[in-house]
Amino acid sequence: MPDYVLSCCSTADLTHDWLESRNIKYIFFNYYLNGEVCKDDFGATNAPAELYAKMLAGAEAKTSQISAGDYMEHFEKFLADGKDVLHVTLSTGISGTYNSACTARDQLAEKYPDRKVVVIDSLAASSGYGLLMDRMADLRGSGMGIDELAAWAEEHKSEVQHWFFSSDLTFFVRGGRISKAAGLVGGMLKICPVMDVEPDGSLAVKEKIRTKAKAVNRVVEKMEELAEGGLDYSGKCFISQSECEDDAREVANRIEAKFPKLDGKVEIFPIGATIGVHTGPGTVALFFWGEKRA
């Protein structure tokens, strides 16, 4: 395996054990809960159920991107050990953390002139970002060098498809992503908006589906339409969910039945605190490789 560090942020919404098993290093995002700084550390500080219960009870939750100083500390321990770093950040369409990582890279360049830090904007979120990291770990394992892998990521990152729905609009309304009036009507009509991640890495409501059962059908249909190879899709499929594992398992069962050539079972991960603060409970997100987002 090439001797450089592959790194991401905890917002890839995988797990500590999964990242360790793939030898992917990571740095935690932070968030504020009633003014207290907490780490987005795969639920170790606040388990998802506890976090959402506090939010539903009225706790004020805000996200905080990683500072340039924190990135410098993260990168430097690898540079000082004589290793280059390829770091992939949460989408610039969601967070400004990419700029912080670039600032850290530039400030470390003079101190470590013989080493390099390469920073990539994933244009992805949650376990879709994780799906990109999974493929990059495979390519590094096959012998791809840091510059070649960075170029591959830039070329292919927009092929990660993100389709998700939410059965609880409370925190989409609080965060301003859906108006109060739309949220009220949506709740009365049992609207489950189906959303995606756009080519610029931002989130967008694509369809307003009435009832959760129809939203489940719709995200599976989107995979049928857009997956690489159609029903012969042979890549991996990840799902992330915020305290609605039964709904996520329903989507996974449908996917496994529809796509017999999948690379293994659909893997389901919890949505981490940084993303979960904005979605609240009730969100299911489906990720797979497909057409380039355009």
Rank of each mutant, 00 (worst) to 15 (best):
46 N>Y: 15
137 A>G: 06
271 I>C: 15
244 C>V: 15
279 T>R: 03
97 T>K: 08
111 K>W: 06
229 G>R: 01
79 L>T: 03
268 I>R: 06
214 K>W: 06
188 M>E: 01
186 G>H: 05
252 A>I: 07
149 L>Q: 05
166 S>D: 08
93 G>I: 07
153 A>L: 04
271 I>Y: 09
282 G>F: 08
131 L>D: 01
22 R>G: 01
130 G>F: 10
160 V>H: 01
159 E>C: 13
71 Y>T: 05
225 E>H: 06
117 V>F: 09
254 R>L: 14
40 D>I: 07
89 T>G: 00
127 S>F: 04
150 A>Q: 08
292 K>H: 13
94 I>S: 00
282 G>P: 03
31 Y>P: 03
273 A>C: 07
266 V>P: 02
158 S>V: 00
223 M>V: 09
293 R>H: 09
268 I>C: 12
79 L>M: 06
22 R>V: 08
192 C>I: 09
277 V>T: 14
154 E>H: 04
160 V>K: 01
149 L>Y: 10
114 D>C: 04
54 K>T: 07
104 A>D: 03
47 A>S: 13
184 L>R: 11
51 L>W: 04
126 S>V: 14
286 L>P: 03
58 G>S: 06
132 L>N: 04
218 R>K: 15
223 M>L: 08
105 R>L: 11
269 F>W: 07
130 G>M: 08
123 L>E: 08
178 I>V: 15
73 E>T: 15
192 C>M: 04
76 E>M: 11
118 V>F: 04
107 Q>N: 12
127 S>A: 15
29 F>G: 02
180 K>C: 02
14 L>C: 07
226 L>I: 02
288 F>H: 02
256 E>W: 09
180 K>R: 14
181 A>H: 02
78 F>P: 00
129 Y>F: 15
39 K>R: 14
65 Q>E: 09
256 E>L: 04
